[in-house]
Amino acid sequence: GSPGIQSFLPPGWEMRIAPNGRPFFIDHNTKTTTWEDPRLK
């Protein structure tokens, strides 16, 4: 199987799917959430 997208996120980050189907990202380091992919910064 191919590695999940989770493995490509920075340490402490998690990806979830919102009720509307959009992915969002949780930064457990700062306890914040964002719509922006942290890998694109």
Rank of each mutant, 00 (worst) to 15 (best):
A18N: 07
I17K: 08
F25Y: 09
G4H: 13
T33P: 03
N29A: 12
K31E: 11
T32Y: 09
F8R: 14
T30R: 06
D37I: 04
T32A: 07
P23F: 09
P10F: 05
A18C: 08
K41W: 15
D27L: 02
T34V: 05
I5P: 14
T33G: 07
F24D: 00
E14G: 02
P38W: 00
W35P: 02
F8G: 15
E14A: 05
P38R: 01
G12W: 05
P3I: 11
D27W: 02
P38H: 01
A18H: 11
D37Q: 06
L40E: 15
T34I: 04
T32L: 10
I5F: 14
E14L: 01
H28L: 08
G12P: 04
Q6L: 07
T32P: 00
I17Y: 13
L40Y: 13
I26A: 01
T34Q: 08
T34D: 02
N20P: 02
W13F: 04
S2T: 12
F8E: 15
F8Y: 13
P38T: 01
T30H: 07
E36S: 06
P10N: 02
T33N: 07
P19N: 11
T34P: 00
E14S: 08
E14M: 02
W35M: 06
Q6Y: 03
W13H: 00
F24Y: 14
I5D: 14
F8H: 15
I5Y: 13
G12H: 06
P23D: 02
K41T: 15
P11G: 07
E14P: 00
T34A: 03
T33M: 13
D27Y: 03
R39G: 11
F24W: 11
P23L: 08
S2N: 12
T30G: 08
P23V: 08
Q6E: 14
L9W: 04
F24G: 00
R16K: 13
P38F: 00
W13M: 01
Q6A: 14
I26L: 07
N29P: 02
F25K: 00
P23I: 08
P11D: 10
P11W: 08
D27P: 00
D27K: 01
N29H: 08
T34W: 05
T33D: 03
P11R: 10
I26N: 01
G4T: 13
T30S: 10
P3Q: 12
P19T: 12
L40T: 10
K41A: 15
I17P: 04
R39S: 13
N29F: 08
F25G: 00
R22Y: 08
T33I: 13
L40S: 12
R39L: 06
I26R: 02
F25P: 00
P38A: 01
P3K: 06
G21F: 03
N29G: 07
N29I: 08
S2R: 13
P38N: 01
H28A: 04
R39E: 03
F8L: 15
T32F: 10
G4A: 14
L40K: 13
L9K: 01
L9M: 10
G21I: 00
P38D: 01
D27S: 02
P11Q: 09
D27I: 01
S7E: 14
P23A: 08
P10A: 04
T30W: 03
I17G: 02
P3H: 12
G12Y: 05
G12S: 03
R39Q: 06
N20M: 03
A18L: 10
T30N: 11
R16A: 11
S7F: 09
